[in-house]
């Protein structure tokens, strides 16, 4: 493989455009083609990047272009099939979160990517935010002792009337605030604390007719850690999406969100507060969030080296299983074991 990575993008929504811009500006990557169904968007792109061919059908793009890496930023329902086609075409792929509509849908992709040795990554971008990364290091370092009880939420003020577009249709999104948004929170929890063993969950719709606007769950992890999770896109006072996790440990307590990390340790008795400003590191190009640049850099680096990114489809599937169990539990009204939770 030459030093310059040839990249393609499938789906020019908000995230597709962000990745397109970042990849266009990063050294050592060249965007060679895009695929997008809406003619208006393709035409608009043509005025900005006239040298980049755009296709209405991504399969044609995969046939015609020699791409080292493809970014899959389509609506969720298409993630797995597009990613599978990328793998078969010999391209590495980066797929936006969540991986798919259900773990059952994702599992064949996980197996096939492993068989083919395809470099792949799922875009759980919170791993690339300074405060969450620092919290993970602190928890792993053992300074606070074993986690005992965890409370968490993810909120954004987004939807206060009937929504339209793919996010609010179950067939294209796989669900509402839980699968589209709170998958970030489930990811952070699985990343911090490992697999979840069982969940009980309740969902409520108010503004959406097909999907949930509110989700509340109680999670029990394989480690014995447990606690509630709450998520909504219809609460006021959250201009930007906010994830907050508070974990009571045997030797202290930690709270982390996008802005800061706060913790106290029984051993030194001190209160510690680290702001994102304390932890900030610049990125070569900033488009909407440093975390997107960092995840793209990591993926491209892995494609170049042929190594496996931290967050592959196997990981994406583990997160998906937790979300699936939450939907199952909400339907049945019972506590549900997470499939393959201990795997």
């Amino acid at each position: 493989m030459s030093d310059e990575i040839s990249a393609g993008i499938v789906g020019l929504g908000k995230m597709g455009i962000a990745h397109l811009a970042i990849l266009n500006a990063l050294e050592g990557v060249a965007v060679k083609a895009v695929a997008e169904r809406q003619a208006l968007v393709r035409k608009g792109l043509g005025t900005v990047l006239p040298g980049v061919p755009s296709y209405s059908d991504y399969r044609r793009m995969l046939e015609r272009e020699r791409l080292d890496a493809v970014f899959v930023t389509s609506p969720t329902a298409l993630h797995v099939s597009v990613a599978s086609d990328c793998a078969e075409s010999g391209a590495a792929f980066f797929v936006e979160k969540p991986l798919g509509l259900s773990a059952t849908e994702c599992e064949p992709l996980v197996r096939r990517a492993a068989e083919l040795g395809t470099v792949n990554m799922v875009g759980y971008c919170k791993h690339y935010l300074e405060t969450f990364r620092a919290a993970k290091d602190l928890l792993d370092g053992g300074k606070l002792g074993a986690p005992v009880y965890v409370t968490s939420h993810m909120y954004v003020s987004q939807l206060f009337a009937r929504g339209s577009g793919w996010r609010y249709k179950k067939a294209s999104s796989g669900g509402g605030v839980l699968n589209i948004l709170a998958t970030h929170l489930v990811d952070v929890l699985v990343w911090f604390f490992g697999d979840v063993e069982s969940v009980s969950c309740a969902l409520k719709s108010h503004y959406s007719s097909e999907v949930e606007d509110f989700a509340h769950a109680y999670l029990t992890f394989s480690s014995g850690l447990a606690g509630p999770l709450d998520a909504s896109w219809s609460v006021r006072g959250y201009r930007l999406p906010e994830i907050e996790v508070t974990v009571q440990c045997e030797g202290g307590v930690l709270t982390v969100n996008e802005d800061c990390l706060r913790y106290s340790s029984d051993s030194d008795g001190g209160q510690h507060l680290l702001y994102k400003q304390d932890l900030f590191e610049g990125v070569p190009v900033y488009v909407g969030g440093a975390e997107y640049t960092r995840e793209d850099e990591h993926f491209i680096e892995c494609v170049r080296a042929g190594s496996s990114p931290e967050l592959d489809v196997g990981y994406g599937c583990r997160v998906q299983r937790v979300t699936d169990a939450m939907y199952d539990s909400a339907r049945s009204g019972r506590t549900v074991a997470v499939q393959g939770g201990a795997a």
């Binding site: 455009i17 962000a18 397109l20 811009a21 970042i22 266009n24 500006a25 005025t47 900005v48 990047l49 190009v285 900033y286 488009v287 909407g288």
Partner: peptide, 15 residues
């Protein structure tokens, strides 16, 4: 900045 930074990264000179 949301638009300027997007345009810069895309090299959107015309816009």
């Amino acid at each position: 900045d949301a638009f300027v930074d997007l345009a810069l990264a895309l090299g959107a000179r015309e816009q």
